[in-house]
């Protein structure tokens, strides 16, 4: 690990000022950062510690949930309001990492976790995301865990986090603050960028901008939501495929549905075709199976991850059954 300086600002403005140092990066819970630093995937000359900004609030109104960007994964998962009104968020968090990591990791950090692509994580390999235009060995190589949606000839890395899948399904927005700029609010989906031919640009954050909070609308579908995660072992593993699903069923008819997939794309992947196929249809196992089959619409798998096409559809089918139960 290279050396760095550590600034510990006490306000947003102090944070923006500390980030003027060339190459400086923010650090929140640090659970991913520390691994990236230790493996020399990143080597910033300075870190700006956000911990003293607090921003740990978890609050809700009948209309909306607000998660401070520095709330820990453990605290959000255990929050009674989250567990009743936005269930899939709690379930996604409890399926993520380990209890120790969840005590450290934050909401904002989890949104920005870097890919687990083995080539990105190995400085001995080429990787367009880590070293622009160095190549992508994953496309012909070990790509079992990588994307079946949204990739490009430059990069097929997948986003590893669970909570953002639930957040994207529920139509969450994020609150951003930057130097000399009023608060701006954007849909969480617009935080992320597909790799295209610049996979090293992963988000639409402006320079020095900080995620302050996540806002999640309340809805009957969010209340009756669930998160299903399939992985190589029963616990403490990244998703092969996952699905966040919320259903609003009235009189046996699906009034509203929200569906997003994890482990299959460079960002949490909203499955609009599935949502479309569900709305207005009877809440039966047959119609769920029919809708779930649409989860793989538009998939472009590579040799090692073709299995994810069927698996994604089955993950959605299972999640729909659970959400409707």
């Amino acid at each position: 690990m290279e050396n760095f300086t550590l600034a510990r600002p006490r306000s947003l403005d102090e944070s923006f000022a500390a980030m003027r140092a060339p190459g400086a990066m923010y650090i929140a819970g640090g659970t991913d950062m520390m691994q990236l630093l230790r493996d020399n995937i990143i080597a910033p000359p300075g870190l700006v510690d956000l911990e003293n900004l607090r921003m740990t609030e978890i609050s809700s109104t009948p209309d909306e949930l607000r998660l401070g960007a520095l709330a820990t994964m453990a605290d959000v998962a255990a929050n009674p309001a989250v567990r009743s009104g936005w269930k899939a968020i709690s379930e996604a968090l409890l399926s993520a990492a380990s209890p120790q990591i969840r005590n450290m990791g934050t909401v904002g950090g989890n949104l920005l976790q870097r890919t687990r692509c083995p080539y990105f994580r190995d400085t001995g390999s080429a990787c367009n995301k880590r070293v622009p235009d160095s190549g992508c060995p994953a496309i012909e190589g070990d790509n079992r865990d990588l994307s079946i949606f949204g990739g490009s000839p430059s990069c097929i890395a997948s986003h590893p986090s669970d909570m953002p899948v639930a957040l994207v399904a529920m139509g969450a927005r994020i609150v951003l603050r930057g130097p000399g700029q009023q608060e701006r609010v954007i849909p969480l989906r617009e935080l992320y960028r597909l790799p295209g031919d610049t996979p090293w640009v992963e988000t639409n954050l402006r320079p020095r901008e900080i995620i302050v909070a996540v806002l999640v609308p309340a809805s009957p579908a969010a209340r009756a939501s669930t998160y299903v995660k399939l992985r190589d072992r029963a616990s403490f593993a990244f998703a092969l495929t996952s699905a966040a699903v919320g259903l609003h069923i009235e009189g046996g008819i699906v009034r509203d549905a929200c569906v997003a997939l994890g482990g299959v794309a460079p960002m949490p992947w909203r499955a609009e075709a599935v949502e479309h196929a569900l709305r207005g249809r009877p809440a039966t196992e047959a119609s769920f199976a029919e809708a779930a089959a649409r989860a793989a619409d538009g998939a472009t798998p590579v040799a090692g991850n073709r299995f994810k096409v069927d698996l994604a559809a089955r993950t959605v089918a299972r999640a729909l059954q659970i959400a409707a139960a």
Binding site: R38, I101, M104, F236
Partner: peptide
């Protein structure tokens, strides 16, 4: 593992269990 995967370095900070390998001492 020094990467937060094994838990051998678990300690308590302010009563909560964490992995000390992914914790900067200066924080």
């Amino acid at each position: 593992c020094d990467h937060g995967s094994c838990g051998a370095c678990t300690v308590h900070i302010d009563g909560k269990r964490v992995v000390s390998c992914l914790t900067l001492a200066s924080r």
